[in-house]
């Protein structure tokens, strides 16, 4: 029998799609749970419950299994009390429930030293860095990308050097940005900018080039002057594709965040993660890393949802919000006109 599942480009049913999406999160979580909760899987260490006669064991300490067994056999030989402990994982791999608790506790635990930011302050700081970096990049990158896509000479003048700089890793500019812009937020925003901008110009230019050229011709035969084409045909013609590009680019901006926050005075979520690692509170480290993922993921999902509603001309199963408003308005106007006719 031929496997239907492996037919190329076969659509997945809605139900199967939902289950698979669920599984894509549950499977890694399940692996994590097994490693954490099944004592005979991995668990290379022993957590000491009571040290017994072993002089250097402390309650709550983690020792290697080998050492634990060796020490206990020594105790047995000497007739002293054996140490009691249970298998444990290294401190850098907390169990899922510990991370889950840390998720909430991290917000309610005051910083160890006064003057250090709370977790929510760190997160907010990171979000601000991303926002401004992406904002400045888009402010220049989107118009420049569109111009490159539309006008050959602009592309020839801009794209080679942009393409060249694109290959220089943004973090390489770290020292330079600090020298120019100081140690606070400005160089971090600059790193996000550098990481995003050059990719953005090329991506936007390529998307713009995919516009059907016959639309430009049609517009010209309808009397659009060349100077009008950009605003009346090119921009509306590519905007919904640009929107999707921007979503992907925003994802890239997030990947530069940690590097950016290392630059100058460490700040934001990176600072939080570093501090917690220093204190060896790995529950919080994991929780913070997940938070970055969750913020990025939900932002993207939200923008995808928004995208379905703000472009009324998009082909989709259910009309978006703006399309429904548009139709409702048209209907109301028609009803009014009909009423007027009936009266007059």
């Amino acid at each position: 029998m031929q496997s239907e599942v492996l037919t190329p480009f076969r659509e997945v049913s809605e139900r199967a799609g939902f289950l698979l999406t669920l599984a894509s999160f549950i499977l890694p979580l399940a692996v994590w749970c097994i490693i954490s909760y099944v004592p005979f899987i991995w668990h290379p260490l022993v957590k000491i419950h009571s040290p017994g006669g072993v002089s250097f064991f402390r309650e709550g300490a983690l020792v290697e299994k080998k050492v634990f067994v060796a020490e206990n056999s020594k105790m047995r030989e000497q007739g002293l009390q054996e140490a009691i402990g249970r298998p444990a994982n290294p401190i850098f791999l907390p169990a899922p429930h510990e991370v889950a608790i840390a998720f909430f506790k991290a917000f309610t635990t005051p910083p160890r030293r006064s003057g250090e930011p709370w977790l929510h302050e760190s997160l907010w700081h990171s979000i601000r860095i991303i926002f401004w970096g992406f904002f400045w990049s888009s402010l220049f990158g989107v118009p420049l990308g569109i111009l490159c896509g539309v006008y050959g000479p602009v592309a020839k003048l801009t794209e080679p050097v942009v393409d060249f700089i694109r290959y220089m890793p943004a973090p390489a500019f770290g020292a330079l940005t600090v020298a120019v812009m100081g140690i606070y937020d400005a160089p971090k925003i600059a790193i996000i900018f550098i990481g995003t901008f050059f990719q953005q110009v090329l991506v936007i230019a390529n998307t713009t080039r995919r516009l059907d050229p016959s639309l430009l011709e049609a517009a010209q035969t309808l009397g659009a002057r060349r100077s009008q084409l950009l605003v009346h045909v090119v921009v509306p013609g590519v905007i919904s594709d640009l929107y999707n590009d921007m979503r992907i680019l925003l994802g890239w901006a997030w990947t530069y965040l940690i590097v950016a926050e290392y630059i100058g005075a460490s700040s934001g979520i990176t600072y939080f993660i570093n501090q917690q690692a220093k204190y060896r509170i790995y529950d919080n480290v994991f929780a913070a890393i997940f938070m970055i993922g969750i913020i990025g993921f939900t932002t993207d999902r939200f923008l995808a949802w928004l995208g379905r509603h703000i472009f009324p001309w998009q082909k989709q199963e259910r009309p978006g919000l703006l399309r429904r408003l548009q139709l409702a308005r048209a209907e109301a106007i028609e009803r009014q006109a009909a009423q007027k006719e009936a009266i007059g």
Binding site: A219, T221, G223, G237, I239, W313
Partner: peptide, 16 residues
């Protein structure tokens, strides 16, 4: 120019 209206084979309506 608009004095010569054109109808193309591939419609070329503005999708937006």
């Amino acid at each position: 120019g608009p004095d010569r209206g054109m109808v193309f084979q591939n419609y070329t309506l503005f999708p937006w």
